[in-house]
Design a protein around this nucleic acid. Sequence first.
DNA 1: AATTATGTTGCGGT
DNA 2: AACCGCAACATAAT
Length: 288
Amino acid sequence: MPELPEVETVRVQLWAKLRGRTISKVIVHDLKTVGADLSFARKLRGLKFADIERVGKLLIFRFEDRPDRSLLGHLKMTGQFFYTERNALTAGGGHSLRTSEFKQLPDRHTRVSIETDAEGVLHFNDQRKFGFLKLADAAETAAAKRRFGPEPIAPHFDHKDFARKLRARKTNVKAALLDQTFVAGLGNIYVDETLFAAEVKPDRSAASLDEREALRIAKSAGAILKRAIKSGGTTFQHFMDAEGKRGGYVNKLKVFGRQGLSCPRCGATILKTRVAGRGTHFCPNCQK
DNA sequence: AATTATGTTGCGGT
DNA sequence: AACCGCAACATAAT
């Protein structure tokens, strides 16, 4: 899933469900996903969720009375967090084993299941197994957070500073925007959408940008990420939110996945090429 | 049926 | 230090 808007969508949903809940049982279906940590389940059992933080595309679960222990979660390419619950109140009065409206979980891509004291279960699904859940101490957590650059949606994001630093980069502008240590939260979809909004070609060298272009990129990135959050993210292939729903921003994409179709701004044909090793979509006419 | 692509990023080598 | 290419893995499409 996983660019900032998708992760933020899931963060908000999970917090509403997990707030104040205590972990009663953890089932590790795939050891690699937890970094081969044989004590992963034991260390989580009994912990009470106190907060869910997001930095860039990384989720950080915090626990009450245990500031020295956090759970880091990254979805990478195909990770998904699903929250399901058994219906405590059914017509017959008993427990229904139906886990959700959208699918039976766990399924063959479920890597970890975390049960709570509220009949609710948090499932971590990940087809390709690039994603991970990792227990971290305070120092590791702080170190992980420090590696991220500023987020374009941050209240105090400094557009001028960003523009100056962007123009000092030696790569093309797409590679610069994908670098999470430079600016956090953009991925392949939102970089293409940002550069379309800013009217800049993805393969332009960052150093060739003038001040106005760099500022347009800074402003566009924040605007697009915010709009995408409002739409619940983008479902292009795998993304599903914590309730199994798809992201609405897919209908608002201007260039991503629209190769061969006409540019919504000028009518020229959208192209797909390869830039920074990634499939890249842009309008050859109105992006300069 | 082999090759290529896929919403990410860490690593090892310039 | 910054940057590039590749690898981690599973699946669908060509």
